[in-house]
């Protein structure tokens, strides 16, 4: 195990964790305040990536594309709320799940029709495409650092909104007591729509950030959504703080597990056995962690305070 690889993988894990947080925070907010299960949240992540890809080609500038894409994806989130989610709040979770499952099929196919079946790679501007030398002589891609920085900034911004602002107060109150917020005479409908759009912007941003690395592709949302579920289950559904800690945890464990588990296994078993079993175990690692957390604390690590 050499240090360079370790540092690189820790940074990768951090990056994955922050992207997971951007997706999971929206999910957990929407669930906490609206009691709504949105499977299509991953589609907003995917949509963010595709819109940003097109705008990058149109404007020739990735960063400008992101700035234009963010309000667009917020609008998409608002439309989902206005035309689908809003009509399902009073229904049971089964209807949420089936309705948003239908929505995924619709959005995935529309993306297929507009952008074609192939993935789209987003070219990075020159200054982001290189490497940065860290103290200690370790080189890391500049863009990864940008993702980590942006993720941290977005997380910080979200904490500020949730903990310091009046909107955040309403969100927190709504998460623990919906009727009370209604009784305060707040336009609950508008608050819900705003939370939904905010969640969409965060998920979309994650999609835009990952697209230059993995390219924008159909199905990318459906892969990340389950991991985001694991994140909010482990963190405690409804808790932004829980989502943050658990996202970083899951991101690091998943990344480090995939690179180093075989080395760890080799300490206790033959190298053949380690090389066969390590990939299987590391693929299941985050689910095993989820199972263990649930077995001990069914409400997750940081459940929001009970009403």
């Amino acid at each position: 195990m050499d240090t360079t690889l370790l540092v690189t993988q820790v940074l990768n894990g951090l990056q994955l964790g922050l992207l997971l947080f951007l997706v999971a925070s929206g999910l957990t907010l929407v669930f906490g305040i609206l009691d709504f299960v949105n499977l299509a949240h991953g589609s907003l992540y995917m949509l963010g990536a595709f819109i940003c890809a097109s705008l990058t080609f149109a404007t020739g500038n990735y960063l400008i594309a992101i700035l234009i894409s963010l309000p667009l994806i917020g609008l998409a989130g608002y439309l989902v709320e206005r035309f689908v989610a809003r009509h399902l709040y009073e229904r049971d979770h089964l209807d949420h799940v089936l309705g948003t499952f239908g929505l995924i099929l619709v959005i995935d196919t529309l993306v297929h029709i507009f952008w074609g079946p192939q993935g789209i790679a987003i070219p990075l501007p020159q200054w982001l495409d290189g490497q940065v030398m860290l103290p200690g002589g370790i080189e890391v891609p500049t863009f990864r650092l940008l993702i980590i920085g942006t993720g941290l900034a977005a997380a910080g911004g979200l904490f500020w909104v949730v903990n310091m602002t009046r909107l955040g107060m309403l969100i927190r109150a709504g998460a623990s007591n919906r009727t009370m917020v209604g009784a305060l005479g707040i336009d609950i409908q508008a608050l819900f729509a705003l939370v939904f759009a905010l969640g969409a912007v965060l998920a979309g941003l994650a999609g835009m950030l990952i697209a230059p690395i993995t390219e924008a592709s159909i199905g990318m949302g459906n892969n990340i959504i389950i991991t985001a579920f694991v994140v909010i289950i482990v963190g405690g559904i409804g808790s932004v703080k829980g989502a943050f800690i658990s996202a970083l945890l899951i991101g690091l464990i998943d990344t480090l597990g995939r690179s180093f588990l075989d080395d760890v296994f080799k300490l206790v078993m033959s190298s053949d056995a380690a090389e066969t079993s390590a990939p299987a175990v590391s693929a299941m690692l985050i689910y095993i962690i989820m199972a263990v957390v649930l077995a001990i604390r069914p409400q997750g690590l940081f459940p929001p305070k009970v009403r």
């Binding site: 299960v37 579920f229 909010i232 289950i233 299987a280």
Partner: peptide
């Protein structure tokens, strides 16, 4: 409730990745 839905999904995904990882 929602926990149950998400966890059943997650365990199914675990099996999915398990078989994906076996060459």
């Amino acid at each position: 409730g929602v926990h149950f839905i998400m966890i059943t999904m997650a365990f199914a995904q675990m099996v999915y990745y398990f078989f994906v990882s076996i060459d």
